[in-house]
């Protein structure tokens, strides 16, 4: 396969488009789940909240405005073909320029501060983005991007569960994390779970899981059935839409897994609000 040259402007334009699109247009998987939830919700208040969320998402799409004011931190999962050479800016600079343009030109909120503790000054362009890159074989760049709000991000947790606790230990930690989050992360939520790898790999998998469409399941039947069981258990907690009580606390549980160490079974739970925003493209 020949080396392919891609202009950095092309990457910038693609990234800009992804962030505008995911912030204005909710995915069909989410809209469909919200519609189903509205039909099945047991609480009248819950039904009304779901109707308002659906109306909100339709307004945002029709008027091309952000569906939530928290347009999030910019996160990208990149599969970078090893036959690609970027011309012009570096790949990372090209991505950040795309984020800058989307958040500035697209009326998205700038929510990033330059230093976490001592100098919480807004960077005013929502950069830097969080970029997870994998080098893969090929001559294309595949990007899945999303804006992650922090109301739900703050409710996320990781635990280094150990093997003797088994699947029950995994379930308990996931359910405890969702229960502790309660009404705060803008339910109905999408629960992204990463199991395995190392401390940081589990967290990254959990994030990746929130970016997976919620009408898909884990390819391994055992995990697919765990996803289903957890979703049912979470919806028995009673928090409901907006945490005001009801039978729809979550609309999806997505699990991603990876090989891990003989001594470990890390579990990360990344909670995402109903505004689960992501979009993909290939350059």
């Amino acid at each position: 396969m020949d080396i392919r040259q891609i202009k950095s402007e092309e990457i910038t334009a693609a990234v800009k488009k992804l962030f505008l699109s995911c912030n204005y247009f909710i995915g069909e998987d989410i809209m469909c789940a919200l519609e189903n939830a509205r039909r099945q919700e047991q609480s009248e208040v819950g039904k009304s909240v779901l109707a308002q969320i659906i109306e909100n998402d339709k307004i945002a799409a029709a008027e091309e405005i952000p569906l939530c004011q928290d347009t999030g931190m910019a996160i990208l999962f990149v599969e970078y073909g090893d036959r690609v050479v970027v011309e012009g800016k570096s790949f990372e600079d090209a991505v950040n320029e795309g984020v800058r343009q989307a958040y500035s030109d697209g009326y998205l909120r700038k929510s990033v501060v330059s230093d976490p503790v001592f100098d919480r000054t807004n960077t005013k362009d929502n950069t830097p983005a969080v970029i997870h890159t994998r080098i893969v074989s090929g001559n294309t760049i595949r990007i899945t991007a999303g804006g992650k709000g922090f109301g739900s991000e703050n409710m996320s947790a990781i635990k280094m569960v150990t093997p003797s606790y088994g699947v029950e230990g995994v379930k308990q930690f996931i359910l405890d994390t969702v229960r502790n989050a309660g009404p705060n992360p803008c339910p109905p939520i999408v629960v992204g779970v990463g199991i395995g790898g190392t401390f940081e790999r589990a967290a990254q998998l959990a994030k990746k899981a929130t970016f997976r469409p919620i009408d898909t399941c884990h390819p391994d039947e055992r995990y697919a059935s765990l996803e289903k069981e957890l979703l049912e258990k979470i919806n028995k907690m009673g928090f409901g839409p907006a945490g005001l009580g009801g039978s729809t606390t979550a609309i999806g549980v997505n699990i991603e897994t990876a090989p891990t160490h003989i001594a470990g079974m890390p579990v990360a739970v990344n909670i995402c609000c109903h505004a689960a925003r992501h979009a993909s493209t290939e350059i």
Partner: peptide
């Protein structure tokens, strides 16, 4: 949106105030 701690609830009662919830994520609406 979301829960408050006991100190806030006590202060709401003491001062005769009210806490309203708006729907999180319904920003455009």
């Amino acid at each position: 949106k979301g829960a408050r701690n006991k100190a806030v609830i006590d202060s709401i009662v003491k001062n005769g105030c009210v806490y309203f919830a708006a729907i999180g994520g319904a920003a455009a609406l």
